[in-house]
Amino acid sequence: MVVGKKSAAYVVIFLVLLACCIQESEATRRVLRGRRTLTRRYFTGLAIPGWLLPVLIGIGELVLGGALYLVLNRVILAKSVQETSTYTPAKQHEV
């Protein structure tokens, strides 16, 4: 059950970061005041500053690169090398 909670936490963190990076949105709302109808527009920008987005992307690439290195190191480089040689020298005719 711990694996489910751990993966759910990663999904939530990913969704929060994705929500911070989504493009700006625009909303229109009508406000009724007496006999007049007012139309108001709301603009919301990104929740994070512009410079932080490339920093987060760079850190994410470093983390993914490190994880990929560890996986490949364990899968490929940590295997023991088999000491079997396929080369056999040719027999020479001795006179």
Rank of each mutant, 00 (worst) to 15 (best):
Y10Q: 04
Y10S: 09
V11P: 02
V11G: 00
V12A: 12
V12W: 06
I13K: 12
I13F: 08
I13E: 05
F14K: 14
L15K: 15
V16K: 01
V16N: 08
L17S: 12
L17Y: 08
L18H: 00
L18E: 04
L18F: 12
C21F: 03
I22N: 12
I22F: 10
Q23Y: 04
Q23V: 11
E24W: 07
S25T: 14
S25W: 13
R29N: 00
R30Q: 10
R30T: 11
R30K: 07
R30A: 03
V31G: 02
V31T: 12
V31W: 03
V31A: 01
R33M: 02
G34C: 01
G34M: 05
R35S: 03
R36T: 13
T37V: 11
L38N: 03
T39P: 04
T39N: 02
R40I: 00
R41D: 00
Y42A: 06
Y42R: 03
F43E: 08
T44W: 05
T44G: 01
G45S: 05
G45L: 00
G45E: 07
L46A: 14
A47V: 07
I48D: 07
I48F: 10
P49G: 02
W51L: 07
W51H: 02
L52C: 14
L52F: 14
L53P: 04
L53H: 02
L53Y: 07
L53D: 13
L53C: 15
P54H: 02
P54K: 01
V55Y: 05
V55L: 13
V55N: 04
L56N: 02
L56A: 12
L56T: 04
I57M: 05
I57G: 12
I57H: 08
G58E: 11
G58W: 15
G58I: 03
G58L: 15
I59A: 14
I59N: 10
I59F: 12
I59T: 03
G60P: 06
G60F: 04
G60H: 09
E61C: 15
L62I: 14
L62T: 11
L62A: 09
L62P: 07
L64A: 09
L64C: 08
L64I: 05
G65W: 10
G65P: 03
G65I: 12
A67E: 10
L68R: 06
Y69A: 14
Y69N: 12
Y69Q: 10
Y69I: 10
V71Y: 15
V71W: 06
N73V: 13
R74I: 08
R74S: 09
R74W: 10
